[in-house]
Design a protein around this nucleic acid. Structure first.
Lengths: 214, 214
DNA sequence: GTACGATTTTACTCATGAGTATAGAGGTTA
DNA sequence: TAACCTCTATACTCATGAGTAAAATCGTAC
């Protein structure tokens, strides 16, 4: 199997850093193959032999990069959640009205949900993770929820948003966004941007034609 | 184990119908125990020994009422989906503007999602069902989606609703509603009615304070 | 060339849980 | 009384898949 050539010009002999880089790439390849299989067949229905086969290696090779199956799944969902978290933190810090920030946040959130690791978050049930991973998983989700909710509350305070119950409104929103990971098909006609724009528009403006009806 | 007494007064000896009724009640008990365990621990993490234990019987007893584990899961999701379908069909047929009908539909949909079989629908991934059950599962979901979408389209036509893309708006809506099944806690503070009312209001009116902003 | 460390393979172990064979208990029908 | 049906339990089979032990390969370091 061809080894990645050193990036630094000159010597064809790989340095220690080159070897580390190759190791990381292989780890990434495992994650990438795993998340795709998890998303399409489900975590439980995917054996590590399946993942190994997709990579043209054998199962023990995978165990050379990860301690166990749970660690692989957790790393997948952790990445998805961190992407959302980054978007939320970025937006929470920036300027603009609450409505502006919420719109930006939802748009980024939606885009993450169209990607492999984002989809994995929605498709993974708490029960599939080990006890330790599960508690971290929940903590990350809670943190995202709180950040989003704070943006909503600030929007209500500055008058750009309106809702009777910020917590429930946040669940409504994140529900619609999380659900993307259940139906979105990257091979389909709609681009991630179009999906994000449409959903954000519906969530911000509502379905009622009159705007603020009862 | 005490056998249910005959409902028809008089003779204490059970008739054939009494026996059928008892059998049905036992089948129901299996389903009820199973759906609760599936919802709390996940389908894969729940063994039929667990279900049997919850009912104080042994596994072969369960197999006397159901052919296999898949049949049990499918019956659970089928019931959830049929409840939604019934609500959708009922509302689609009734009078009122598209907005009125959509509001009623969403409210019923939300309530189903707070109940055992409804929650099971959201918590069950396609991959957990057998090939045959999966295709029926998908067909039922598709039918619901189409019914809901039709109501949206009629609302747009009669001017009571507004959206650029009825399909995407339907996904936004059903996503928010389906998500209830992931977070709602029947033991919690919020009643199913309050949750339904809040989510429907947010979906109809949007989060933006100005109503019809960009 | 020898030793070493990282990588990958072959060839296992072992727990779990779905599903079954079979027998027994209890009541019903002929 | 005997044949029978329904229901339930005991005591299995068997496939699957996570995880591992141990050896082979290969490049690098001394």
């Amino acid at each position: 199997m061809a080894k990645a050539l050193p990036q630094t010009a000159g010597s064809p002999w790989p340095t220690a850093e080159d070897r580390d880089r190759v190791r990381l790439r292989k780890k990434e390849a495992v994650l990438s193959a795993a998340v795709r299989l998890f998303n399409s067949k489900g975590f439980n229905a995917t054996s590590l032999d399946d993942v190994a086969e997709a990579l043209q290696v054998t199962k023990p090779t995978i165990y050379h990069y990860f301690a166990n199956k749970d660690e692989i799944l957790f790393e997948c969902v952790r990445r998805g959640l961190c992407s959302i978290n980054d978007a939320a933190a970025r937006v929470a810090a920036q300027g603009g009205s609450g409505a502006d920030r919420l719109r930006a946040l939802m748009t980024d959130y939606a885009k993450v949900m169209t990607q492999d690791f984002g989809m994995c978050v929605t498709r993974t049930a708490d029960s599939e993770l080990s006890a330790e991973s599960r508690s971290q998983f929940r903590a990350l989700k809670r943190q995202i929820d709180l950040t989003v909710r704070r943006v909503v509350e600030e929007g209500v305070k500055d008058g750009s948003l309106h809702t009777a119950d910020a917590r429930l409104a946040t669940f409504t929103m994140t529900g619609a966004l999380n659900w993307i990971g259940r139906w979105y098909d990257p091979e389909g006609e709609m681009s991630a941007e179009a999906v994000a724009a449409g959903i954000v528009s519906t969530l911000m403006n509502g379905l009622a034609a009159t705007g603020k009806a009862a």
